[in-house]
């Protein structure tokens, strides 16, 4: 190659080739633009608003956990779906995916960068930033939950949201239009909520809404902790399966 000797060439990292550059782009696209401020504002309004409402109503005893189940869980899932549904389809439609794939980039790196982008962006805001802020608010109000229990609940919420990120990305590799990529996960959230009300036991816990509810239980500690662990483990397996599916499908994609 006629490259200037001063350059340090990128080493081929196999199935991770190009991941660093793509992930930097995703992170900059979130934290380096006004996107992060818009999301911070929106999530703060939703989650802290729900928490303040719960604190205001909790004259006696601990406040409710709506800010976790509704704010972080349901709204978080809906937000994650809306934000990630266009990640793959949009790039395929606009032609930027073909541009990236003409570089020495692996298909798996493209999918993983999108997933890690969601993890370092929206998930970080919803769970780490808002979760920490909520914990601080609870502590200030004299309702500080046990740190480990609270962390377990946040981890469960994070897994719950990542499930929808992985589902959206996987669907993005299967469909060429945004409709089904948006609709299917949204229906999963809504149907999950409805079914959860009518099911019991492990069936209910395994539903997305069930997982959200389990994470809420976790925030109060007690016997639900084991269920959180079990259900979360199943969701981690599902997330890995969805990502592998997305990678396999995207590897077969022709541009």
């Amino acid at each position: 190659m006629a490259a200037d000797l001063a350059f340090q060439s990128v080493r081929d990292r196999g199935w991770l080739s190009g991941l660093g550059t793509l992930l930097r782009k995703e992170i900059h696209g979130f934290w380096g633009t006004r996107t992060c401020w818009v999301q911070l504002g929106a999530w703060t309004f939703l989650i802290q608003g729900l928490l303040l409402n719960a604190l205001a109503r909790a004259h006696h005893g601990a406040p409710g956990t709506e800010f976790i189940s509704v704010g972080m869980g349901t709204f978080g899932a809906l937000g994650m779906i809306v934000i990630t549904h266009n990640a793959i389809v949009g790039e395929r439609q606009s032609g930027t995916a073909a541009w990236i794939m003409s570089k020495p980039v692996s298909r798996s790196a493209f999918i993983l960068a999108k997933f890690l982008g969601a993890l370092t962006g929206t998930l970080t805001v919803v769970v780490a930033v808002e979760g920490t802020a909520a914990y601080a608010a609870l502590t200030a109000a004299g309702h500080s939950p046990a740190a480990l229990t609270y962390l377990r609940a946040m981890a469960a919420v994070a897994i719950y949201l990542l499930f929808f990120a992985a589902l959206s990305l996987c669907l993005g590799t299967l469909f060429t239009s945004r409709g089904p990529v948006l609709a299917i996960p949204l229906l999963a959230v809504l149907a999950g909520q409805l079914l959860h009300l009518n099911l019991a036991g492990i069936g209910a816990a395994l539903l997305p809404a069930g997982h959200s509810a389990v994470s809420v239980s976790a925030s109060s500690g007690g016997p639900a902790a084991t269920a959180v662990l079990a259900v979360s483990a199943i969701y981690v397996v599902l997330i890995i399966g969805l990502l592998l599916g997305a990678i396999v499908r995207f590897t077969r994609e022709e541009f």
Partner: peptide, 25 residues
């Protein structure tokens, strides 16, 4: 029909391209 990320400037698009080949300096 070359396509780029709308938010990127021309310089950023080139820098982004270069990073697939060079880590530095």
């Amino acid at each position: 029909d070359p396509r780029f990320y709308d938010r990127m400037t021309a310089r950023q698009a080139l820098r982004f391209s270069a990073r697939f080949f060079y880590t530095g300096p």
